[in-house]
C-alpha cells in the first residue's frame, strides 16, 4: 500500500513539474538570448516538446500520435496529415506565427508576432511536423 501511495505521489509530482515550468516568463527570446548569452534552441524535437523561455512547448496542446512520448494534450489538433492539411508549408508557418489571423478566438499563442520564437525556429518546427 505504502508503495502505491509513493508511486502515486511521485507521478503527481512529475505532473506538477511539467505544469509549472512554462510559467517562468515569456520575454522575447531574442532579447533574452543577448542578456543571458544563451544560444537559441534549434533542435526541432526540443523546440516542440520543451517548455519555458525560447521553447515552443507545442506538446502541451498538440499530440504527435506517431511518437507515443509526445502525446500529452489534446487542446489543439494532433499532428497528422500535415501535408494534406497544409499543402503550402508557408501557411503552416503563418499559423504558428499568428493563428489569430485565421481564428480570432484561438488559444494558440502568437509565437511569431509576440517573438516567443524566431522565424528560423518556426521554420524548423514547421519542417519537423510536416513529416507527420
Amino acid at each position: 500500500m505504502k508503495k502505491i501511495i509513493f508511486l502515486a505521489i511521485l507521478s503527481m509530482l512529475m505532473l506538477q513539474g511539467c505544469k509549472t515550468t512554462p510559467g517562468s516568463s515569456a520575454a522575447a527570446p531574442a532579447a533574452d538570448a543577448k542578456k543571458e548569452a544563451k544560444p537559441l534552441e534549434m533542435d526541432p524535437k526540443k523546440l516542440f516538446s520543451s517548455s519555458g523561455k525560447g521553447m515552443g512547448n507545442c506538446t502541451a496542446c498538440h499530440a504527435i500520435p506517431a511518437d507515443e512520448k509526445l502525446v500529452a494534450g489534446d487542446i489543439g489538433p494532433p499532428m497528422i496529415g500535415m501535408k494534406s492539411r497544409f499543402p503550402d508549408i508557408e501557411k503552416l508557418k503563418a499559423a504558428i506565427a499568428d493563428q489569430k489571423v485565421f481564428a480570432p478566438d484561438t488559444i494558440m499563442p502568437p509565437f511569431g508576432r509576440n517573438k516567443l520564437l524566431t522565424p528560423e525556429q518556426i521554420d524548423v518546427i514547421a519542417q519537423y511536423i510536416y513529416q507527420y
Binding site: L15, C18, K19, S51, A60, A72, G73, D74, I75, I107
Partner: peptide, 11 residues
C-alpha cells in the same frame, strides 16, 4: 470554458 474537459500537458 472553451477547452474545458480537454487535456493540457496531461492535466
Amino acid at each position: 470554458i472553451q477547452k474545458a474537459g480537454k487535456i493540457a500537458r496531461t492535466e
